[in-house]
Design a protein around this nucleic acid. Structure first.
Length: 291
DNA sequence: GCCATTTGACCATC
DNA sequence: GATGGTCAAATGGC
């Protein structure tokens, strides 16, 4: 089971990288970070890349959750895999941030009023709206007219000390999908210089969402969270990475399907974990320097 | 006591 | 007036 998840994840990630590179080409160097693309041209390539990165990121989270659950001794292959996953997730978060800044996609009908700027605003739909590589502080919540769930308002945690203007809103989709899907609308670019630290924070402490899973890890009980009817805000604090599903054509992994023995006894084949000769080169493309 | 979240009030826009 | 975004005091957890 774990082997299958690793393999599917690797495949998804390779596809993501290829698409991301396409997206990068669409965002030519001369366009600059804050360039705004024509909504009907390269834009589509970037959107596809972003979607794929989102999927890969979720798979990485799932795989990491599996590895975390094993509590293997230091120096084990699983620990190495965990470290690699941390790096990959950091890279994907950085790539996603950069691609999104290229796209500057305007949200349609998602909390975007006509008075708002059409640039520096974009949105995405994800089941893990709180793990995007940045640290956010909630500053408000509103019941939105005609929406089933309230909208939560977040701003960058470094707004005070660094004046970072980035904000985002998170709103659960009206549907009853499980895991719940959240519409995340970002506004303005981060100007803070704490990407790495915030990613580490997001992955290690996973603002409360992973806390419940950490508890289960210690008890070695791999139980999925119960379907919740909580609000979007509540979901932000209770959703577990073990329940994270994906959308589209990627493989869904449920930890509830994994027994402890399966996790412990399954050794991924060498070719699953070995990186392609071009892997480091490819991943190097995602080592963007922060503005 | 500190810090993050909650929540009602206020403001801007349509 | 309706709606959405932000502010700031209150609240709760650590």
């Amino acid at each position: 089971m774990a082997t299958n998840s690793c393999t599917s994840w690797m495949l998804a990630y390779k596809e993501t990288i290829a698409l991301s590179l396409l997206g990068r080409q669409a965002c030519s160097p001369g366009m600059g970070r804050h360039a705004e693309l024509d909504s009907n041209s390269e834009h589509c390539d970037n959107r596809l890349a972003i979607d794929k990165i989102n999927q890969a990121h979720e798979l990485a989270r799932q795989l990491r959750a599996v590895l975390l659950s094993s509590s293997l001794p230091a120096g084990s292959s699983a620990e190495l895999a965990r470290e690699i996953l941390d790096k990959l997730m950091k890279c994907s978060a950085s790539a996603l941030s950069r691609l999104q800044s290229c796209c500057c996609r305007t949200c349609h009908g998602v909390g975007q009023r006509s008075r708002e700027k059409t640039h520096n605003t974009w949105c995405t739909v994800t089941s893990v709206p709180y793990d995007d590589g940045h640290s956010w502080r909630k500053y408000g919540q509103k019941d939105i007219n005609s929406a089933k769930y309230p909208r939560s308002y977040y701003r960058c945690i470094h707004r005070k000390e660094q004046g970072c203007p980035a904000t985002k809103t998170v709103q659960q989709e009206d549907g009853d999908a499980y895991p719940p899907q959240f519409i995340v609308a970002y506004s303005m670019q981060h100007t803070c210089r704490s990407m790495g630290a915030s990613i580490a924070f997001a992955m290690e402490s996973a603002p409360k969402e992973e806390a419940s899973f950490e508890g289960s890890r210690s008890s070695r009980h791999l139980l999925p969270p119960p379907p919740s009817t909580a609000t979007a805000a509540n979901q932000s604090q209770t959703s577990s990475p073990s329940s994270v599903g994906d959308r589209g054509d990627t493989t869904r992994l449920s930890i509830s399907e994994l027994s402890w023995q399966e996790i412990m006894n399954t050794s991924p084949p060498a070719d699953t974990w070995s990186m392609d000769s071009n892997w480091e080169t490819v991943m190097g493309c995602f080592e963007f320097s922060e503005a």
